[in-house]
Amino acid sequence: MENLTIQYVLVGIIVLLAITYLVKQGKKSLKGNSSCGKGCGCAPLTNCNTSQKK
């Protein structure tokens, strides 16, 4: 029983790490100055003001 509890705790930690990693990645990308911004492709966001539509 004790062995099983330890296993569940370890499983919980690994799963938590996986979820935290995914959430962190998502947050970082969605709020940060990511490389690809809406409306201006994979370009520096500062360039969007002067971008020309092809």
Binding site: Q25, S34, C36, C42
Partner: peptide, 10 residues
Amino acid sequence: VKKETGSWKW
């Protein structure tokens, strides 16, 4: 795609 675009948004 996330790795190459560097963005979850796209």
